[in-house]
Structure formats: structure tokens, C-alpha cells
């Protein structure tokens, strides 16, 4: 009989669902419809294989991380499970490089002390000390580079970012969390068009996602729109132009929202420019990162433009 392992305890599951098994033992798992639809009871398999039907209706990025719906999961083998917001774990990492990407954004490379699993575009928590941490998205691609790469924007009076700008140097040992988030590329549907819209350091996850998609041989259009107030705000410009030269399906459009837009730059708010160029997003996959107001507005506008809610991935930072 399969057992369900949760919080270090083993429970006999029998024919029951994982949700019923845990609930019967007094474990609190939030649930609502109990029919595999509302996704309230979502859990993650830490080890063991979950039957495919227990992932029905989940976003591809959640299924890829072994999330499943506990109310319709009848395991066939022992599985270890955790709630989705369970601690992401902590890791030590060494800073291997600190460089100015522009006057407001630092590029930091980190080498974790132990094997570190992640997908390009997910985020980590970066700890200043025991209690203060901030989320930063991963711009690196595990298959392409050994070090993690994050982009830190200087936030006025920002506790963690100011500490990073003032103190961090190559050689330092820092604490980070494991990677989380569902803003990443899932291989498959290689012909699907992809729209990516980001502002400021919201470019970081998009830079990872784009290179991951290209590495996987993605064939559909990959269209990146990066927004900034002025041209000083852009970074990784040379790298992105190079990628566009090497891959005919990738296009890069830097958009300036205030002041003059020199040749090669679009003039306007990044979301408006992107939607003006792509008014019908039916069947598209969409990634949105950066300013929370832009991301919120973009979620709705890209949905109204035809993208399915299942295909819209967003990180509001």
C-alpha cells in the first residue's frame, strides 16, 4: 500500500486521495471544491511520482515542478509531499562577480556551495541577514552557465539593495533561498509565439527565459519589449542585439517612455508599444515582469487581446 510522507511522518494512504489521507490524520491542507478544479489544495511532490491525472488543468510551469491537486491524487507508489509555501530552503553561495550593468542596476554572479536546481526566470530570496531578504529573478540558464546571475536595482532607501550596492564584493559568502516561481519556459509547443514585456530589472527573468527557449530550439516568434524612462535605463543591450542577429525568430525592442527615442528605440510606454505591434495574441505565450502596475495592467490587456489565462506568466517585481 502506498504511503504519503509529509513533514517527516508516514501515513498509510490506501485508496484515499492524498488530501483525505492527510486530513484524516489531522494535517491541515486548505481545500475547497475537492474535485480537482479550484486548485486550492495544490501540493508539491518532493519525491516519488504523482499520477498524471492529478496535474489536470495546472499551468505547465506548475506541473513541471511536480505540483499536483491533492484531492484527486491517488498515489500508486510512496510519495513525499509538501505544501506549496513550505520553506524554500537556504543555501550558501559565493559571490563571483559584481558589475555595473547601468548606473542603477548591478549584475551579480553567485556560485552556490552545493548543487542548486532552478529554471531560468525563477526567483530566489537574497538574505542581507537573518530577517531581511528580497526576491531577485534568475537571468542565468542552468544549461548554459555555471553561476547564478541576478540583476539588483538600486531602490531609494532600499534596505537590502543599498546594502548590496554599498558592500557586496567578489569573494563574499551570502545566503540565498532555493528557487521558486512559475515564470519560466517549459519546452514543448515549439511553434507557439512568445511575447515578453519587462520594465527595468524585470528584464532579468526574461533574459533567462529567452535564452532557455532558444536553447530548446523554439521555432515560434520570440518578441521582447523592454521599457525604460530614458535610454540610460537599458542594459544587456549588446547581448540582446547579438541574440537577435543569431536567431531570426527573436526580436528585441527597447522602448523609451519619456523624452527622445533615438534610432533603434521605440517611443512610448512598453505595454502600449507591444500591444500595438501585436494586437491579436490568440495562442501566444506571454511573460510579464517588472513594475507591479505595468504587470497588473498587462495581465488584463494581454488576456483581452486573446492570450489564454493559462499561458500568461507574471512576476510583479
Amino acid at each position: 500500500m502506498p504511503e504519503v510522507i509529509y513533514g517527516g511522518q508516514s501515513y498509510e494512504c490506501g485508496e484515499q486521495s492524498v488530501l483525505d489521507c492527510l486530513t484524516a490524520q489531522g494535517v491541515h491542507v486548505p481545500s475547497s471544491c475537492r474535485s480537482g478544479l479550484c486548485q486550492t489544495c495544490m501540493m508539491r511532490a518532493v519525491s516519488g511520482t504523482v499520477p498524471e491525472n492529478a496535474k489536470a488543468g495546472l499551468k505547465d510551469t506548475l506541473a513541471a515542478q511536480n505540483y499536483f491537486l491533492s484531492c484527486i491524487c491517488h498515489p500508486l507508489e510512496d510519495i513525499e509531499v509538501a505544501l506549496p509555501d513550505a520553506a524554500m530552503g537556504k543555501f550558501q553561495a559565493q559571490v563571483t562577480a559584481v558589475e555595473n550593468l547601468n548606473s542603477d542596476i548591478l549584475g551579480i554572479k553567485l556560485k552556490p556551495a552545493q548543487p542548486f536546481e532552478y529554471k531560468a526566470g525563477q526567483f530566489i530570496n537574497f538574505f542581507k541577514d537573518q530577517t531581511n531578504a528580497r526576491c531577485y529573478s534568475l537571468a542565468s540558464v542552468p544549461a548554459l552557465e555555471e553561476d547564478l546571475f541576478i540583476n539588483v536595482r538600486k531602490v531609494p532607501n532600499g534596505l537590502v539593495s543599498r546594502w548590496i550596492f554599498d558592500n557586496l564584493k567578489a569573494g563574499d559568502i551570502v545566503t540565498i533561498s532555493g528557487a521558486a516561481g512559475d515564470c519560466f519556459y517549459v519546452p514543448g509547443k515549439p511553434e507557439q509565439n512568445i511575447l515578453l514585456i519587462g520594465t527595468g530589472s524585470g528584464l532579468a527573468p526574461l533574459y533567462g527565459i529567452i535564452r532557455d527557449a532558444l536553447r530548446n530550439g523554439h521555432k515560434g516568434k520570440i518578441s521582447l519589449y523592454h521599457g525604460s524612462y530614458n535610454i540610460e535605463g537599458f542594459y544587456l543591450v549588446k547581448e540582446l542585439h547579438k541574440l537577435a542577429q543569431a536567431h531570426s525568430n527573436f526580436t528585441y525592442a527597447p522602448c523609451v517612455s519619456e523624452g527622445e527615442a533615438p534610432e533603434g528605440y521605440a517611443r512610448g510606454m512598453v505595454l502600449d508599444v507591444a500591444l500595438n505591434d501585436n494586437s491579436d495574441l490568440s495562442g501566444w505565450r506571454v511573460f510579464l515582469c517588472g513594475n507591479p502596475e505595468m504587470v497588473k495592467s498587462a495581465q488584463q490587456k494581454t488576456f483581452f487581446a486573446g492570450a489564454s489565462m493559462r499561458d500568461i506568466f507574471a512576476d510583479p517585481f
Binding site: C38, Q39, Q299, Q300, M309, R310, I312, A314
Partner: peptide
């Protein structure tokens, strides 16, 4: 949250 709302 639009994504969660869509599941509902």
C-alpha cells in the same frame, strides 16, 4: 490574482 481567479 487573475490566475487564481481563473481557476475559480
Amino acid at each position: 490574482d487573475m490566475s487564481k481567479q481563473s481557476a475559480k
